[in-house]
């Protein structure tokens, strides 16, 4: 496991990192948690000429809520920070459910949410969670900052919307307008395995009514899939056995799985449906448990 030759620079500031990226061109890569990049380099699936390490840049390891209720996750906030976050436990059930399911404890200690979004792996868990929550990504570049909605951030498998001299510095989860509820379920053959299928559900309710629904699917397509028809089927309606079953059916339809060694397409679709129903069925206040 010997990577190709590469240059390594440890940036001390965001501006320095951006300069290094600009000079490095397409052959430069940002190193944050390194949990995908380093294995890919060791397998020589990736051979960047320059690594710009941002781990020494101060002030990026935060996650907090703004007074308006939005949640902000810095580029160096580790999965483990989110796993043990009281903030998410009390305010953001979908993220709180996903955090302990990310890979394994070793990866969680180093890997970052923002890095996972940038990696744009269709089997990345956070991409589904942030997509379901309607989040966005803040990019820092030579000309300042811009905010990119999660829905526009991933262009395809392993391809994101950042310019080569931009760094994703923060993910933003917008403030809920209703009471947030939801969860994340994934089927994996073993801890640390990529998802056979994963489902993120984030809803907001006002009384019995669903006011906003976000459903996104992991590992069942060429990129993370937003199950828009399933979302529409819930929005403006109460959670009942019927609406839950309908959402499950529509989410399974939205999936575009391929058969592989993790399971057949039929099985993966079935898991999507089962998980949507299970997450929605477990939400407190649901009048009837889903069939």
């Amino acid at each position: 496991m010997y990577p190709s030759r590469f240059r390594y620079e440890a940036a001390r500031s965001l501006d320095q990192a951006v300069r290094l990226l600009r000079d490095g061109g397409d052959e430069a890569k940002v190193l944050a948690g390194g949990q995908s990049l380093i294995p890919m380099m060791k397998l020589r699936f990736a051979s960047p000429e320059l690594l710009v390490d941002i781990n020494n840049i101060p002030g990026l390891d935060y996650h907090h809520a703004d007074p308006d209720g939005s949640i902000h996750v810095g580029a160096l906030c580790r999965h483990a920070d989110l796993e043990h976050s009281g903030l998410l436990q009390s305010r953001q059930p979908t993220m709180a459910a996903a955090a302990p399911l990310i890979a394994d404890p070793l990866v969680r200690n180093r890997g970052t949410l923002v890095g996972s979004l940038c990696h744009a792996d269709p089997q990345g868990d956070w991409a589904s969670v942030v997509l379901a929550l309607g989040g966005s990504i803040v990019a820092h570049g030579p000309d300042g900052r811009r905010t990119i909605p999660a829905a526009d951030f991933v262009l395809g498998p392993f391809e994101n919307a950042l310019a080569h001299d931009e760094i994703a510095v923060e993910a933003i989860i917008p403030a809920p307008r209703g009471a947030p509820a939801g969860g994340y379920l994934k089927l994996e053959r073993r801890v640390g395995d990529f998802a056979t299928a994963g489902v993120a559900v984030a809803i907001e309710t006002d009384g019995a009514m669903v006011t906003r629904a976000g459903i996104a699917l992991t590992g069942v397509g060429g990129s993370t899939i937003k199950a828009t028809a399933a979302e529409a089927a819930l929005t403006g309606r109460p959670l009942t056995a019927e609406t839950i079953a309908e959402a499950g059916r529509l989410a399974a339809e939205a999936a575009q799985p391929k058969s592989d060694h993790r399971g057949s397409a039929t099985y993966k679709r079935h898991i999507v449906r089962t998980f949507v129903v299970r997450i929605l069925g477990r939400i407190e206040g649901t009048q009837e448990r889903a069939a």
Binding site: D104, R189, R190, V191, G192, D193, F194, H261
Partner: peptide
């Protein structure tokens, strides 16, 4: 990643 050996979790 593909050759799965169970961990203490499983």
């Amino acid at each position: 990643m593909d050759y799965l050996i169970p961990t203490s979790w499983e």
